[in-house]
Design a protein around this nucleic acid. Structure first.
Lengths: 348, 348
DNA sequence: CTGAGTGTTTAAACCGGTTTAGATGGTCAC
DNA sequence: GTGACCATCTAAACCGGTTTAAACACTCAG
């Protein structure tokens, strides 16, 4: 009796009205006398009644939940600073709204389409966030054909039926290059993320064109995979060049911090012998030695904006415009400095 | 027509049977002729019908989802290596099972009880994972009173109605201390996590008692907060002691890596002047310089085991026993070594 | 006094599944 | 021919909400 959760019928009985009246009252719909509404609300309070999300979902055909599919293998995922903060941002919007966030981690290499289909077909979510966009991303087509609303994190190339939330990586990357140029560096290399990802190539293209603007060519561009292990490998290759770089720009902090370790292990002093810059401004960036010059984005704000935008879309508020967030900005710390004198001499 | 998702009624019509028959067939229940079952399955395949999770949830009173409430502020959360891997482990069990993981991030300091209540009252999940256990954790009582099944990550003190999944932190911590003792260290300090957490005190108690076993006292035990910034602070205080430690054992890798940076910034060489050990074996631990001696747990396996256990409980398989995972083990890298000679001399 | 209009409330259908009592048809023994 | 029994299948109730057409009560104009 007191054990089972109360239903709307219990509330109706207690208030001496019909189920329908309770529904109207609790949803603030018009058509009920003020006194009745108050009586119903009082009854609901006394019974501590919360509407069952299951029943609501079924009758209004909404899940009251949004989905995030993360397509990464656990190792790669494990220390990505982006997602936890992004998720926290999403939650800050969903929580107060009575919505939930459904997470799905599909192991890289598996059939990721299945992950989205599971969420869509089962009707578990009303919309999904599309992160880590790839070139010609097949998921856009897939979601469109499933009729599942989505928001893309950054803009995909080609046409997309979905609104995008934009956080431009390029200005920050350009700032890094300019910062290094101002310090006097001329031999600068880049460790990029997997070229399949739009944000990886955006960063490396911004890097290359910023250098080109100064009439320079990269000493090297190493393709890597955003992992620490990959960062080490790429760094070793760059340092083994006949004319090694005096500065390396990494596409994320994990690779940069690992690269920092690799350089130090190789006996180089950072920043004296080698300047290093990252991307993300992850928590450790500030605290490693030397503090990492990097580019700071706002993943929490990104999550908030994405959640708000996706909700607009789901609620069918007509055309939902893209949202542009303030771009990521350079944060200068101790890992970058003027190149050592022999580097300077070469220039003069 | 072709737009709306097919329902069980569409399948029934197509197969020329009743809704009930379709339900029986698709759930492998007995009572249907083999030929009929095949006809129904064929019809379902042709229509690409997947049962609506919403309808199923309502009629069988199950959410087919498990919940994880993370009670941390975004900053602290953002680079914790535990959760992403743990979540991936959970997903590896839930995904193939057609279940979903519902995430809820409640900002530290807010009313976390509300987070659990939202999940429970709305019937969004069938059970929850209870992580970051605290001493006299109020959530146990709360969940018990809500009638919500739960699994605790590690064993709470006091009695708990819920099964626990255990991954003992202590043997690894003891191993770290023994390793340092064998290297010849006698002045060893500890940077602990917030004493409110069971796992934080478990680690610091294991540390203290391992030292005591060797007849030693800690040089210092600094309470900290698991963050990099906190690690820096604690390290500074330890290094400022009149008799500073020759080795510091940190309760997690983030503090350890930050401490490493702080020591280097202070002009100390690691491991020559100071040995440093962490806990977690996060991705970067291997790649910072010098590589961090730490303790490796298996958060992915932890997630798997927790999900399996919680599912058993939810399915009502009687008494669900606790599950004990292999304890976290020491991983020796370059950040620990014999103390420099003056430290040795003092001893001899 | 009738009818229209307004405000309030209810009964019942509906969402899409699962579950169960009972209908149906066939076989077999007596 | 009758009843028992089995295998197969269906109709209908049910889960707990939302939504809508219709019922009801009351006031007011004509």
């Amino acid at each position: 009796m007191s054990k089972a959760r109360p239903t709307i019928a219990d509330v109706a009985t207690r208030a001496g009205v019909s189920k329908g009246a309770v529904s109207l009252a609790l949803n603030g719909r018009p058509g009920l006398a003020q006194a009745t509404v108050e009586r119903i609300i009082a009854a609901a309070d006394e019974l501590r009644w919360r509407p069952s999300n299951r029943a609501r979902s079924l009758s209004v055909s909404k899940a009251f939940a949004l989905g995030l599919v993360i397509t990464r293998d656990p190792g790669v995922l494990s220390s990505d600073p982006f997602f936890p903060a992004f998720i926290a941002g999403v939650e800050s919007v969903l929580g107060p709204n009575g919505q939930a966030l459904v997470l799905q981690v599909v192991t890289a290499g598996e059939d990721e389409a299945a992950g989205y289909q599971r969420l869509a077909q089962a009707g578990r979510v009303d919309g999904v966030f599309l992160s880590d966009l790839r070139h010609d991303d097949p998921r856009i087509e897939l979601l469109a054909s499933l009729g599942m609303p989505a928001v893309t994190l950054n803009r995909p190339e080609g046409s997309s039926p979905f609104p995008a939330v934009l956080l431009d990586d390029r200005p920050g990357t350009v700032e890094v290059v300019q910062h290094l140029l101002e310090l006097g560096h001329r031999r600068i290399a880049h460790v990029a993320g997997p070229p399949a990802f739009v944000h990886a190539t955006a960063r490396s293209e911004a890097f290359t064109s910023a250098l080109a603007e100064a009439g320079l060519e990269p000493v090297g561009i190493e393709g890597s995979d955003f992992t620490a292990a990959g960062g080490i490998e790429a760094t070793r290759r760059l340092l083994a060049l006949p004319e090694p770089p005096t500065a390396i720009v990494y596409a994320n902090d994990r690779m940069a911090i690992a690269g920092l370790g690799a350089a130090q292990r190789a006996g180089l002093r950072v920043p004296d012998d080698l300047s290093i810059a990252g991307f993300d401004d992850s928590e450790l960036a500030e605290f490693v030695h030397p503090g990492l010059t990097t580019v700071r984005a706002d993943p929490f704000g990104f999550g908030e904006a994405a959640a708000r935008t996706l909700n607009q879309l789901v609620d069918g508020d007509g055309d939902v415009p893209d949202v542009e967030l303030p771009p990521a900005r350079l944060v200068i710390r101790r890992s970058t400095a003027a190149p050592a004198s022999h580097g300077m001499l070469e220039e003069s």
